[in-house]
Amino acid sequence: MTSCGGGGNTPKAVAEKAVKCLQDKDYDKFADLVYMKVKEGEDPEAGKKMLSGMMQGKADKMYEKKGGIKSYEALSEQIDESGESAVVKMKIMYGDGSDKEDDIKLKKDEQGNWKIDMGK
């Protein structure tokens, strides 16, 4: 398993890092992996802190019911023709024996780094 902070800049690597951060309950590092559009005069760190706190509240409750994240696996990576967005299909196995397949959407930020796209 990779650490929450390491890995490359591919959609698959970023999606795996994000799930690893959730598994480790490292919501600050998870927030670093999320695409955030920062408006003029806004503090990007404030937005990350807010997201981290929100994720902690929601994720802790959800994963606690399922016995935590036991393991995960990237099943596929699909990058669109523009090369600017992608979808990674992840399989997440929980401590209670259940599992779930999830599509994680990603997009490139202004620096060309892949980030989790939580936009609707």
Rank of each mutant, 00 (worst) to 15 (best):
82 S>L: 03
93 M>P: 05
26 D>R: 01
51 L>V: 05
23 Q>I: 06
69 I>T: 00
114 W>L: 00
69 I>Q: 01
54 M>G: 08
61 K>Y: 09
73 E>F: 01
115 K>H: 08
22 L>Q: 13
115 K>M: 11
75 L>R: 01
59 A>Q: 15
66 K>S: 11
65 K>A: 02
85 S>Y: 07
25 K>T: 07
20 K>M: 13
60 D>Y: 00
100 K>L: 14
56 Q>K: 15
46 A>L: 14
89 K>I: 08
26 D>T: 03
93 M>W: 09
65 K>R: 04
107 K>Q: 10
81 E>Q: 11
84 E>S: 04
106 L>P: 02
89 K>F: 03
69 I>N: 02
101 E>L: 10
81 E>A: 14
64 E>F: 08
110 E>S: 10
40 E>Q: 08
65 K>F: 02
91 K>T: 02
96 D>W: 10
29 K>N: 13
43 D>M: 00
73 E>K: 15
82 S>K: 02
97 G>E: 11
52 S>L: 03
40 E>Y: 03
61 K>R: 08
105 K>R: 12
111 Q>P: 03
89 K>S: 11
60 D>W: 00
64 E>C: 09
74 A>Q: 00
61 K>S: 13
62 M>W: 14
92 I>N: 05
39 K>N: 10
90 M>N: 08
116 I>R: 01
81 E>G: 09
83 G>C: 00
33 L>M: 05
107 K>P: 03
103 D>K: 14
93 M>L: 12
49 K>W: 00
80 D>G: 09
48 K>C: 07
82 S>M: 01
99 D>F: 12
21 C>M: 06
76 S>W: 05
71 S>Q: 05
89 K>P: 05
53 G>I: 01
19 V>Q: 14
54 M>L: 10
75 L>H: 03
114 W>K: 01
52 S>A: 14
87 V>K: 15
102 D>I: 08
37 K>P: 07
58 K>W: 13
56 Q>L: 08
31 A>G: 13
23 Q>L: 05
91 K>E: 14
46 A>S: 12
89 K>G: 03
55 M>Q: 12
69 I>R: 00
106 L>F: 06
36 M>L: 13
104 I>F: 02
117 D>V: 02
